[in-house]
């Protein structure tokens, strides 16, 4: 039998190696606690704690009794014999009551059905509500209204309904098309100056913000799952997992030349619901 050391745990503890390493462990642990209060850098704290734990492991390893022994016995069982662990240890295992298991599963099933019924009964609403209405101005994140003539090629990125800046689900991406004029299925009445379009920023795939605009192809691009939309053609999906276009915001210009919504979104924004 290997790995067996003579003597009791007390004898082993009195040998010099465990005492020395144990002292190191204690010192490092004290250093760690002191370091926390003294505001040491993370690296010093981490190394002190790692060292203390390793030293503890060494001490435990030194103190270990005869633990490496294996039980080895010939496999003399025949098919149909009692399970081997039972044979080795005269175990008293009794099978888990089948009735309890079945009863538990049945109870879970009934509970799940009741839950589903409750959920289905609790009624549904018509999807997320945005702050866009007729006459609501488009503003930047700083709350500044936007003149149609000031929209640069490529656009502003994210704009918001006035009074609801940073209202998550109302985020809109405002774009001046770089390569061509808007064409159907874009609703042309909602386009300003043939090239300025606004779409909901909430991806119709999984609801991430549609983050990127590629000028060379006039496409909007969602960084989460690579969904790509054609901004010049009603933001229809051209690649990736999205199945529906980004809803287009009815866009117009007020008497002072500021961009304004002429209505709310015609279709629900965000992902399709089940």
């Amino acid at each position: 039998m290997t790995g067996v050391r003579p003597g009791s745990a007390g004898d082993r503890l009195r040998r010099p190696v465990p005492v020395g390493v144990g002292a190191v462990a204690a010192a490092l642990l004290v250093a760690f606690v002191a370091g926390v209060f003294l505001g040491w850098p993370t690296a010093a704290l981490g190394l002190a704690l790692t060292g203390a734990l390793l030293a503890v492991a060494v001490v435990v390893g030194q103190l270990r009794g005869p633990v490496a022994q294996e039980l080895v016995w010939p496999d003399e069982r025949h098919p149909g014999d009692a399970p081997v662990a039972t044979a080795a240890a005269a175990a008293v295992a009794t099978p888990v009551r089948r009735r309890w298991v079945l009863g538990g599963l049945g109870g879970l099933g009934i509970g799940a059905l009741a839950g589903v019924g409750l959920l289905a009964w609790s009624g549904r609403d018509g999807g997320p509500v945005t702050a866009w209405r007729r006459g609501v101005h488009l503003v930047t994140a700083e709350g500044q209204r936007i003149r149609a003539t000031d929209v640069p090629v490529g656009g502003f990125g994210t704009v918001w309904p006035e009074g609801s800046v940073r209202a998550d689900l109302s985020a809109v991406v405002l774009v001046r098309l770089a390569t061509q004029e808007a064409e159907p299925p874009t609703v042309l009445d909602w386009v300003v100056g043939d090239r300025i379009v606004a779409y909901s920023k909430i991806c119709t795939h999984a609801g991430c913000p549609v983050g990127l605009y590629q000028e060379d192809t006039d496409s909007l691009f969602c960084p989460c799952h690579q969904a790509t939309f054609d901004a010049a053609r009603g933001a229809v999906p051209t690649f990736g997992p999205a199945s529906r276009p980004l809803p287009q915001l009815p866009l117009g210009v007020d008497d002072d030349g500021f961009l304004v919504a002429t209505d709310g979104f015609a279709t629900p924004i965000g992902p399709v619901r089940g």
Partner: peptide
């Protein structure tokens, strides 16, 4: 002599092994 079965009785040295594993 055919096949042999091998195992360690968990009760022996359980605390020291648990402590060692935890520390590591």
């Amino acid at each position: 002599g055919g096949r042999w079965l091998v195992a360690v009785p968990t009760g022996v040295g359980l605390r020291s092994r648990a402590a060692l594993l935890t520390a590591l």
